[in-house]
């Protein structure tokens, strides 16, 4: 563990809590892509299958449980409890166009072909693109609630910090995992224009609106 990875995990936790609180407090999931949340739940489910038979540390197990529980709780709030506020007209990204390539790619490029490893590789590739339905929805509505933009910023910052963690580990432990690094860079790049808008608008107190 290093400070960059710890900060990254904290950003990740903050993002998930902010989203849950936003939906719970406003009793609305307007502007939130349920499809992205489905993909995130799938990412954690496929990545943390080893939760039940591989103990790494208390921190590791606790965080995995929190990520799994909160992602399914978010799905419940979106698709059951506050279903009436789900904006399905704007949440139209075809997630099969993400799922199928990730399955194919995880069969082509993976560290090895054990079931757990294949699921892990699939979850890494899927996480890289899981935010696309959400970014697509924001581009369609042309705006996002400020709290939603904080959620997206924290979520983008988490993987950006993981990249710093991988650079740090490369130089201190000569450890590098090409699959995670390449997917993590792609994932962070997808947030690039969002980061720009967030920093130039939201941090200046303006609403998060895409240039018309």
């Amino acid at each position: 563990m290093n400070i960059f990875r710890l900060l990254g995990d904290i950003c990740h936790l903050v993002a998930i809590i902010v989203l849950l609180l936003k939906i719970w407090k406003t009793r609305s999931c307007a502007g939130i892509s349920g499809k992205s949340q489905i993909l995130f739940a799938l990412v954690y489910t496929t990545r943390y299958v080893d939760l039940f038979f591989t103990y790494v540390s208390l921190y590791n197990s606790v965080m995995k449980v929190i990520f799994l529980a909160s992602s399914y709780a978010t799905l419940y709030l979106i698709y059951v409890k506050f279903k009436a506020t789900y904006d399905f007209n704007h949440d139209t990204f075809r997630i099969e166009f993400l799922l199928i390539p990730c399955v194919i790619l995880s069969l082509l490029i993976t560290h090895d072909y054990s079931p757990v490893e294949l699921l892990w590789t699939f979850s890494i590739y899927l996480e890289a693109v899981a935010i696309l339905p959400q970014l697509f929805m924001v581009s369609k509505t042309g705006e996002a609630e400020t709290i939603t933009s904080h959620y997206l910023f924290a979520l983008g910052a988490y993987r950006a910090l993981y990249i710093v963690n991988w650079i740090y580990r490369y130089y201190t432990e000569s450890f590098i995992d090409g699959i995670a690094v390449v997917a993590g860079i792609i994932q962070t790049i997808l947030y690039a224009d969002f980061f720009y808008l967030y920093i130039t608008k939201v941090l200046k107190g303006k609403d998060f609106k895409l240039p018309a």
Binding site: M1, R5, D9, H12, D50, T54, V56, S57, N60, M63, K64, F67, H111, D112, E117, W120, I124, Y162, N165, F175, I176, D177, G178, I179, A180
Partner: peptide
């Protein structure tokens, strides 16, 4: 070494 990913990363 590169050949395995680190299981302790979330």
């Amino acid at each position: 070494h590169d050949h395995d990913h680190d299981h302790d990363e979330l």
